[in-house]
Amino acid sequence: MSKIIVVTSGKGGVGKTTTSASIATGLALRGHKTVVIDFDVGLRNLDLIMNCERRVVYDFVNVINGEAALSQALIKDKHSDKLFILPASQTRDKDALTQEGVEKVLNELSKTFDYIVCDSPAGIEHGALMALYFADEAVVVTNPEVSSVRDSDRILGIIHSKSKRAAMGLEPIKEHLLLTRYSPERVKRGEMLSVQDVEEILSIPLLGVIPESQSVLTASNQGVPVIHDEISDAGQAYLDAVARLLGESKEHRFLDLPKKGFFKRMFGGTA
């Protein structure tokens, strides 16, 4: 039996696809057979972030409609033989994802995979509901900013009321907060909500804090999930988050400003 993890947020542009790519890659790097599914039908992007856009032949909707076998639609990742991508359809609309169809595909995937990561579209419409409906765990991606926090709270309400686990009265979905684009410098200046502020408002356990980092854009330019960039702070923060997802306890890093050394203090420079 595999574990189904939805990466969701309500608001768009907060880093769901970046996070899905990195978490799925991280799970595979740790030896777990993982598949990451793009639920954003009509606006697929996971294929770009994972650099497999030119290898897409069949997609999720083709499999649901029986136009292709699952094995034909799954794309093997270039870096890890334990990771597969199931791309979204670019031409259909989100209603093509029927609940029965999604369930059938997830059931088939769970026979061979340890983890199924569902990359949710933004919003609270059908596509987002389908992405979270069958989930066992949810990673709620949030920016330290008012509209993102409010939308995260909204999506948490939907997880509580409209998921399969809620509908069937099963044990609730395990929720994780992933705070992205965090800038300790701006928090210190009182310009940005702190981790504690967001934790207090959303009151769900913190999975990780991904610092605002230039490496995220560099990684997406190249189509290499940022978790592969082990030198960057964002890459390390994702590695830590994956370890915590697997049950390890790791201290949170990158929450404070790096201490400036003597030379930096004397001669400036951006630390």
């Binding site: 008012v146 409010r150 009182g190 940005m192």
Partner: peptide, 19 residues
């Protein structure tokens, strides 16, 4: 007051209301 604390206060009110 810092803008972050304004943000927090506004969020606490709206989130409580919407819940």
């Amino acid at each position: 007051p810092s803008t972050a604390s304004m943000a927090k206060e506004r969020l606490q009110i709206i989130v409580a209301h919407e819940r």
